[in-house]
């Protein structure tokens, strides 16, 4: 059952006041503009055992993602497509408020929203990953672990997933005598578009991009918007117990297009993809 809760991070009243003072002067407490993201650092291919991997640092939020490829049965209703499974976990290392155990609803939402951005954009051309239609297909797992949490895990995790996929090479499987055989050679992952997500929060009447954990503790509402390489929207999730006006939604949508494109450019430069 979903239950309303107080923020897990108690921001002191003075700190909150500082945040308000800064916002009224058009600044944020870390000196950023309202529409400015924190510095984004991406390292590729850090896990040699994985088929592709990436570590993303967005400010102090740190996420690692790894791609592992197997074969298996296709999903029901999607018999002629490879299977893609994106999962996310917030490790107990990430903050003093995380406890080991089954994922709470925030983590479930994180995993599902990140998965939705990748899936709905059709980033990977899954139709190219079928061995025997309806029976055996490639199964691509992208697993993420949040190592350190300082807000906006949605975007940090989503960039990590995208970077790991762009970094990945798939093993070439073949069917020989009704058995799946790994030929030992590698193929490029069939990527058709690069989705990027941008999260914005409303504090009072102000919309801020890329919130820190402190800002999230003071937010009224949150929205995550993913766009694809064509500049189309492919997944949206409004979160937190507050509301937006239509104008604020459009403002966040505009930011998602422009900031998302900037992140996409960074990802392209880093990985050499041209989509």
């Amino acid at each position: 059952m979903s239950s309303s809760k107080r923020s897990t991070i108690i921001v002191e009243h003075l700190r909150k006041q500082q945040m308000w003072d800064a916002i009224s002067k058009g600044k944020r407490i870390d000196g950023r503009e309202f529409g400015e993201q924190r510095p984004l650092q991406i390292e590729l291919d850090i896990i040699k055992k994985a088929n592709g991997s990436a570590k993303v640092k967005l400010g102090d939020s740190e996420v690692i993602a790894g791609v592992k490829v197997e074969t298996g049965e296709p999903f029901e209703g999607l018999e002629n497509k490879g299977a893609l499974i994106v999962s996310a976990e917030v490790l107990p290392t990430a903050s003093p408020h995380v406890e080991p155990g089954p994922p709470d609803e925030d983590t479930v939402e994180l995993a599902r929203v990140v998965d939705r951005g990748i899936r709905e954009s059709e980033m990977i051309d899954l139709e190219k990953l079928v061995l025997i239609p309806g029976k055996i297909v490639y199964t691509i797992f992208v697993d993420c672990s949040v190592l350190n949490a300082d807000g906006n895990l949605f975007d940090a995790t989503s960039y990590a997933v995208v970077a790991a996929i762009l970094n990945s090479h798939l093993p070439v499987f073949e069917i020989q005598n009704d058995k799946v055989v790994d030929t030992g050679s590698k193929q490029d992952t069939p990527v058709s578009t690069i989705p990027t997500s941008i999260t914005a929060v409303r504090i009072g009447e102000i919309v801020l991009v890329d919130p820190t954990a402190e800002e999230e503790a003071c937010m009224d509402a949150r929205i995550t918007i993913a766009t694809n390489s064509k500049g189309e929207f492919c997944a949206i999730q409004k979160g937190h117990a507050g509301s937006f006006t239509v104008e604020q939604i459009r403002e966040a949508a505009e930011a998602a297009l422009t900031k998302g494109e900037a992140v996409r450019r960074t990802l392209k430069e880093l990985t050499g993809y041209s989509h």
Partner: peptide, 13 residues
């Protein structure tokens, strides 16, 4: 005020 907004699938602006 909008209190829920989700999207699955692609839409141009």
């Amino acid at each position: 005020q909008i209190t829920l907004l989700q999207l699955d699938g692609t839409l141009t602006p």
